[in-house]
Design a binder for these strands. Structure first.
Lengths: 138, 138
DNA sequence: TTGCGTGCAAAGGTTTTGCATGGCA
DNA sequence: TGCCATGCAAAACCTTTGCACGCAA
């Protein structure tokens, strides 16, 4: 829970990939596949261990939408909390939308101040129906 | 996505259990274990299938905190009366808070207008830590 | 040189699927 | 009677762990 550890090639490669794909979440499995396709050989266990470590350090955000597809990780550009975003999941097409919005940030502040409740954005998903599905269906 | 299905003993038993334990979440594994301990024999696959079906119908709410421990299900007490407010669930003490708040209503309107996304309040739960737990811990 | 990091494979957990059987409507 | 639901076991997954070897400091 403490070590920043050595700076290894693998750790760098993993973080570089996530930074290059900021604001997009990816599973450990998918990340392993991507890295190996890019010609950088890395083991599955290593990816899991690195992701967990980076998440503990607050560099990555970890969250789980569905048990079947596994946990997702994502690079957090600004750990201070200004650029955090919420997730909207369409119950119709299952698409997951990432939304950065000052209105949502304001909501978090309001709920904390007036209701004493500290929203954990990593666990919260707003469910509903997206514009595309609303247009297509009835 | 369509069938309400037959009314079988298993389905009834599962729903009864969840209703009796409202506002408490449970995993499919744990539920299977509980039911069998109560002397009601039910297969794992059946539990998974029933829970999925009930969740599709909006009777249960499904969510996943951790990929390793699996998905959790929970009975939604009053689908009609809960339409006007949001739910805040404390991940620490498992308490479910019902909050009516113009700020939350405004959020729904904003997200619909600016992001084209219609939030379904009956399916959405905001996770975080409540005031009491924040005070107790550190 | 020391000790952590890595990689492989195996283990452990949850969830899904195939198929024959049983039960609701 | 016609199907859907069930149950069992096997399969498919994701994730973690044990252990020997490699590499950063």
């Amino acid at each position: 829970m403490k070590q920043s550890g050595y700076q290894t090639k693998q750790k760098k490669q993993i973080l570089d990939y996530l930074i290059a794909h900021s604001s997009r979440h990816i599973t450990a499995q998918e990340l392993t596949r991507q890295l190996n396709e890019e010609g950088f050989s890395v083991g599955t266990a290593t990816v899991y261990r690195c992701l967990e470590q980076l998440a503990d350090q607050g560099i990555l955000r970890k969250y789980t939408i569905d048990a079947r597809s596994g946990s997702c990780y994502e690079y957090v550009p600004d750990p201070c909390g200004c650029r955090e975003h919420f997730h909207l999941k369409c119950t119709c097409c299952d698409t997951l939308y990432h939304v950065t919005c000052e209105q949502l940030d304001a909501l978090g502040a309001h709920v904390l101040e007036h209701h004493g409740f500290a929203i954990d954005q990593t666990k919260t998903v707003l469910y509903g129906v997206c514009a595309r599905c609303r247009g297509e269906k009835s």
